[in-house]
Design a protein around this nucleic acid. Sequence first.
DNA 1: TATAATTATGATAATCGTTATCATAATATC
DNA 2: GATATTATGATAACGATTATCATAATTATA
Lengths: 148, 148
Amino acid sequence: MRPKEEIILENYIAEKGFKRGAQRKGIAEIFLSTEKHLSAEELYALAKKKYPSVSFATVYRALKVLCGCGLCRELRFDDGVSRYEHLYGHEHHDHLICTVCGRFVEVTDNAIERLQTKLFKRHDFIPQRHRLDLYGICDKCGKKRRAD
Amino acid sequence: MRPKEEIILENYIAEKGFKRGAQRKGIAEIFLSTEKHLSAEELYALAKKKYPSVSFATVYRALKVLCGCGLCRELRFDDGVSRYEHLYGHEHHDHLICTVCGRFVEVTDNAIERLQTKLFKRHDFIPQRHRLDLYGICDKCGKKRRAD
DNA sequence: TATAATTATGATAATCGTTATCATAATATC
DNA sequence: GATATTATGATAACGATTATCATAATTATA
Ligand SMILES: [Zn+2]
Ligand SMILES: [Zn+2]
Ligand SMILES: [Zn+2]
Ligand SMILES: [Zn+2]
C-alpha cells in the first residue's frame, strides 16, 4: 500500500467515524499490493493466509470501504462474478481478457475513446461512462495451442 | 415470430429430439415479437398474461432453447440481471443505455470496430468477441431533467 | 386408438455470489 | 477502567438462476 493510498483510506475511515480494524487494514494491504483484478473469493484466499479465521463478510466489507474511498472499483464480468481493480494511479482504461488463461491487460485507445463520445452525441445521449471488454486469446496461450 | 425464425426453432427442437410444448412455443412467440432487451422477469410477466399458471422455470427453459438455436443471446449487464436480445436479422451491435429510463439503443460504429481489431493485434491477442456498453442520458430524459 | 416411452411443465428445493443480522471482540472516548 | 460504538465471524437471508421431481402432455409404437 502506497503512502498516499494509506492516507486516502485513513481519511475515509476517519470522516465516516469508523474504527481501525486489523483485518480490514490487512485485507486492504493485500488487495492494494496485488496488481490483479481479484475476485472476492481470490482475495479471501489471500487474506486467509494472514488471518486464518477471517470471514468472507469481512472481505466484502473491506472491499466496500475500498470502493467507498475511491481506491477500488467493482467490475462485473460476463461470468457473473465481480472483480475488483485498483483505481489509484490508474487512468481510465478498458480490458483485454484472455479466454484461456484469464489474463487481464489494461488498455486505452484514445481514438476509440473519441469515437465513443461522437457515438453518444450522434444519438443525442449525454455521456456518462462506458465499458469495453475485449475477449480473445493471448500470445502465450495462442503459442501453446499451436504447439499442441 | 417470422417464418424463418419458426423454422430455425422447429428444426432445433426436432434435431434435439424435443417435443412441442405449447408454453415454450408461446413464450418464444412473445419473446420474438417483442423488440426489446427483455429480462427473464419481464418475459415471465408477459407470458403470465397468456398462460396464467406458467412457471419461471419454463421461461428460463424457453430462453435456453432460444439461445441454443441461435435466435437469442444472453447479455449480462452491470446490475447483475441477464437480458435477452434477438439475434435473427440483427447484425453485431453494441449498446447505448439510458441510465434514467433504461432505454436500449443498438449501435454500430465501423471505425470503432476496426480500431478494436487493431487493439487486439497490438497486444498479440487473437480476437474472439467484444462487448461495448455506453451508458448515458437519452435525449428525452435529458430534456425532462432540464425542464424540472 | 390404446399403450408405452419420453419430454414438458409447474412447484419447489438447491445453488451461487453477495448482503444482512446478531452476538461477541476490539477500539475509541471519557 | 467504564462506556459507547464499530469490527469481526458465524450464519441466515437474499435475488437471480438452475436442478429436482412428480405429473401432464406429446410422440412413437403396436
Ligand atoms: Zn492467455
Ligand atoms: Zn483494470
Ligand atoms: Zn432515457
Ligand atoms: Zn442489442
